[in-house]
Design a protein around this nucleic acid. Structure first.
Lengths: 225, 225
DNA sequence: CGAGCTCTTCAGCAGACCTTCAGCCTGGAC
DNA sequence: GTCCAGGCTGAAGGTCTGCTGAAGAGCTCG
């Protein structure tokens, strides 16, 4: 899951990045509205956390412009303390939820998760493909009920593939959603991880759930292989 | 367990904070109704202690507004001496219990505990995972019936883990639910406490109930290890 | 006021994990 | 069959996460 944080206060931006990264999100930070719009046009984010008070282009405008462009990425707006009057306006311009500063990180996470969930229109709590299941809450991966031990990075990749079951996902996309923005390694690292995932979730079970689509990346077999 | 106290009398607020903190709760204090509503919207409290007589927005209104927002956090209302007439109204607006001033702290604790218990829809009075039990009322931790001596902080952590059995709980989450709002230490302190908890509840019994989930925190084994 | 307990910080360590790289394999074009 | 780009894999190193013991600060109680 890749999140864009548009926030000019360095301290806030840093702590958001740290916290969200710790939660397993890949995070990009933009320092003003203009930069935010540009990032959003370049990368397909899973959600955007948008401060209202921004240099150059303020939050409302960023939000409005995105929607005008037909970009419906969920937006969580951050407003200053006394944001009562602004609430209506914020939601009007197309934000999906808003949060007043200062806020508790747990709250932000909860809201963010609820946005991400809502988007996929009632995505089930556990991701599945045949007898392969992944539970984000317990961080457990199972095949045929048997628990499989995976590393954090393997978990993230599998989570992404399972939430796009049946679609061919390019290595580039995986790099962008699972790794941090400033990661500059090549696509080979994805191959390495897919390889090690296969060794854990497919080979021991004689399955083939992660299918290589030459030139187009990988695809999770809806039947689980 | 994190409690919000909405109370304008400084002395009362202080003593509630002191007493509840001593019992291992994390406590936030709001000085008036408006502030209380704001806190409640930002943080996911386990319960709210709400004075009736408040500046700006009184207790009834706070209560009503919370329920209107679909916030069903248990509320314990504090009313003035002659509160007979108010009782019905208080419960009507959505408070879960009420208490007339002056009251005994032990009584308040008992009511609060009963609220917290009730909330989880008949959550058992004692939290359990296999033969490991924790009784919030008596502050006792037992394994296989044998009493184990734990410090307040250790108790809080164990309580949180036991009330989220099976889920991976982030260190950040523990920091936010077990420590006070303004604590700014790093996650290492959680590691230290988990270490000392393990030395008390796991190692002497040859068990492993608190499982480390690399990159995602800790998880209480439902079977108790 | 001192003893004892708890809380918190810190630095060092071990092991898990991440990343890179070189060499090999495979599928498709010709 | 040959060639090539794309994909796979095992090994090696460096980095990071989590664990631990120690030590000082703060608090409570006698």
């Amino acid at each position: 899951m890749r999140i864009l944080v548009v926030e000019d206060e360095v301290a806030m931006a840093q702590s958001l990045r740290a916290g969200l990264t710790a939660e397993g999100f890949a995070v990009d930070v933009a320092g003003d509205g203009e930069e935010g719009l540009w990032y959003a046009s370049e990368v397909d984010y899973d959600a955007i956390i948008l401060d209202l008070m921004l240099p150059k282009v303020n939050g409302y405008k960023v939000c409005a412009q995105l929607r005008e462009r037909d970009d419906w990425t969920p937006i969580l707006m951050l407003t200053a303390k006394d944001g009562h009057l602004d609430e209506a306006e914020g939601l009007d311009t197309g934000a999906d939820d808003y949060l007043t500063k200062p806020f508790n990180f747990v709250v932000l996470l909860a809201r963010l998760r609820s946005l991400l969930r809502r988007r996929g229109s009632a995505r089930p709590a556990t991701l599945e493909a045949g007898d392969l299941t992944l539970d984000p809450a317990t961080h457990e991966v199972r095949r045929d009920g048997r628990l499989i031990d995976v590393t954090p990075r393997e978990f993230s990749i599998l989570e992404y593939l399972l939430s796009h079951v049946g679609e061919a996902v390019t290595k580039q996309t995986l790099l962008e959603h699972v790794w941090d923005f400033d990661f500059d390694g090549g696509p080979n690292i994805v191959e390495v991880y897919v390889g090690s995932l296969r060794k854990k979730i497919d080979i021991p079970f004689g399955r083939q759930s992660i299918v290589t689509v030459r030139g187009a990346g990988y695809k999770m077999d809806p039947s689980g292989g």
